[in-house]
């Protein structure tokens, strides 16, 4: 074999690269957070270097957050998780006991350094005159969002629409349910993930409205300036928290307790909150909020737990096989 020497060298280099490096942190995160952490990580590395003199390497793993949680349960040694669904962190406690049940109380704001809500991306000039959830169920409006079965992003869309309907109909579930059915009937395509839905809407030109996180909507507008998309934030909306946690079992084994905690606390610092706001996430730091108020339209946010009792109930009543979502989709087809 002619290439065997080169291969041996490469092998050697790859094997060495892991143990030689100084302290490493692995952040397991959701799908669409790549650009965000690519910007935050260097800031923290510099900050940590200054504070402790230690050079840190931060590795990123991205995927659907349920899938990421599965991987951690199966042995992926992530030091911290930065997810977009608190249920996916609860799973780490319930099924693997990798962290305590009270992980929400270990950091401020429900361990959620930033939050977002849903927004609508409409085509140039908003031809269908969309301004609220109610408008989305009108006849002739084509909707694009991922499948709530596989995407946390789309679960928020579903819950946002349902929650808004419940408020409009004074908690009359039968009426709300009926409205959600017409809303779902307007869906043109159910992609499996957020990015797939974006491609359907932008590149394939499907539908009139793309529903996704506000942060993602603004990113798309910036990414495709020539299409002149417009953003609509409905007046009532669902609060989407972005919970973070260190994985106790893994940081003990990796010896990264200090670093992991400092990393997550850093997400609450002014420097990180500025980056977050620049990526169109809503933040808590008062100064940053005041400085960026213009880019975040006022909207009345409700918590999923307030409208639907609990996430567990939502999961088993709405998203489980044969649940309300399945029923409504089936009824809508008839």
């Amino acid at each position: 074999m002619h290439t065997s020497k080169k291969l041996a060298l490469l092998l050697f280099a790859t094997l060495l690269s892991a143990p030689l490096a100084a302290k490493e942190l692995l952040n397991s995160s959701y799908d669409i957070a790549r650009e965000l952490f690519a910007e935050i990580n260097p800031l923290f590395i510099a900050h940590w270097q200054q504070q402790s003199g230690e050079t840190l390497t931060i590795n990123q793993s991205h995927g659907g957050s349920s899938r990421q949680a599965q991987a951690i349960l199966q042995g992926l040694r992530a030091d911290v998780v930065t997810f977009n669904q608190s249920t996916d962190i609860d799973v780490l406690h319930q099924r693997g006991n990798l962290l305590p049940a009270n992980w929400r109380e270990r950091l401020a704001n429900n361990a959620s350094p930033y939050y977002s809500t849903m927004a609508f991306l409409v085509r140039k000039g908003n031809p269908k005159q969309i301004s609220s959830w109610q408008d989305l169920a009108k006849p002739g409006v084509g909707l694009v969002f991922p499948n709530p079965k596989t995407s946390g992003n789309a679960r928020y869309t579903y819950l946002g629409a349902y929650g808004d309907a419940l408020q409009r109909f004074d908690n009359d579930d039968a009426k709300a349910r009926n409205w959600v059915k017409t809303f779902l009937a307007n869906v043109v395509v159910f992609d499996t993930g957020g990015r797939g839905a974006t491609t359907s809407f932008v590149d394939r030109g499907l539908g009139d409205v793309l529903i996704t996180f506000e942060s993602e909507v603004n990113g798309i507008i910036k990414q495709y300036p020539d299409q002149q998309f417009e953003r609509v934030v409905p007046p009532t909306n669902v609060l989407a928290e972005f919970p973070v946690a260190w994985i106790d079992r893994n940081i003990q084994r990796n010896g990264t307790e200090k670093q992991a905690k400092a990393y997550l606390e850093f997400l609450y610092s002014k420097a990180a909150q500025q980056v977050l706001a620049r990526h169109f996430y809503r933040v808590h730091d008062a100064d940053v909020v005041a400085a960026t108020a213009a880019q975040f339209p006022a909207t009345k946010l409700f918590k999923v737990e307030e409208v639907f009792s609990s996430w567990d109930a939502v999961q088993s009543n709405h998203f489980a096989s044969g649940g309300v979502l399945d029923q409504l989709l089936a009824e809508g087809k008839r």
Binding site: A18, S28, N59, Q60, S61, G63, L76
Partner: peptide, 8 residues
């Protein structure tokens, strides 16, 4: 089985 850790 990868866990898709960038650079790893």
């Amino acid at each position: 089985v990868s866990g898709t850790i960038r650079g790893q």
